[in-house]
Amino acid sequence: MKNYFNIQYPIFHRVGIVLLFSLAFSVTNLMAQDETGTTEVVKVKPVKNTFGSTLVMNNQTVMVPIKGTLQFDIQHCFGTVNNGSKDLFGLFAPSNIRLGLGYTLINNLTLGLGITKERMQMDLNAKYALLRQTDGKMPVSLTYYGNIVIDTRAASNFRYDAHRLSYFNQLLIARKITSKFSAQVAPSFSWFNNIDGYVDSKGDIQKKMNNGHFAVSVLGRYKISENSAIIAGYDQPLTSHPTNNPHPNICFGIETTTSAHAFQVFVGNYYGIVPQSNNMFNRNDYTAGNFLIGFNITRLWNY
């Protein structure tokens, strides 16, 4: 574990830990109040529409659709804007696409699968809402998201089949602060069974990166009308690797939702779409202007 917190970003690490402890303490405190409170039973309903969709740009949100909802995701990232008009700011450059399906089997649990163009990855994912924010009782919503990803490229790319696998686990903590503004913080852990290596000057094989990687994501939504919002996010790597340290991600965009759709158009640094690919391998440096345009479309059906 120590390896993964070889703190390259001490401020973010400390802020993250303080924030997590504060949230945990506030929840414990409220539960204690419940035990000693009045006996009057008031039905408290969860806060609704913390976010407009289960996705905000490159990250999951705490939202889990209602039971019986089938969700179809189309996620798209174009190339970086650096070539300017030569490739129309990345719109004509090679792009990355994910198509995903998710179904909410029971209340609070969605199971899904998807395919992503980059490295021909196939993902199986699960999302479970552990806590829901309620007025005056539960200050935050808490949701778990995890996946298993299979790299389906030709066998010649792998020594063992197990090397195809990677995993992602994330805790999403969000609060609808006002009717217009919601914020989310989400620590995550990514794991790749196989990581590239190199031969050092002594002839020994060394890993370019650790297999595991901690990161934290922060994002927010501000509604500018009933159905439209400004969205922004920041992803900070926490683990320091021997080489090839990934870059953080800054992203912002607009979102509009309808009865059955959510549309998001955004600018950011992440290209991978699959969360562990983004967190481990982001080579787009915002200080060098490596931004790209992306969009998400989600369609919901209720059965």
């Binding site: 009933e226 159905n227 309808t258 009865s259």
Partner: peptide, 11 residues
């Protein structure tokens, strides 16, 4: 109700 109208009915 207005928020729901805007999302589900207005179109």
């Amino acid at each position: 109700g207005k928020a729901l109208w805007s999302k589900h009915c207005k179109a």
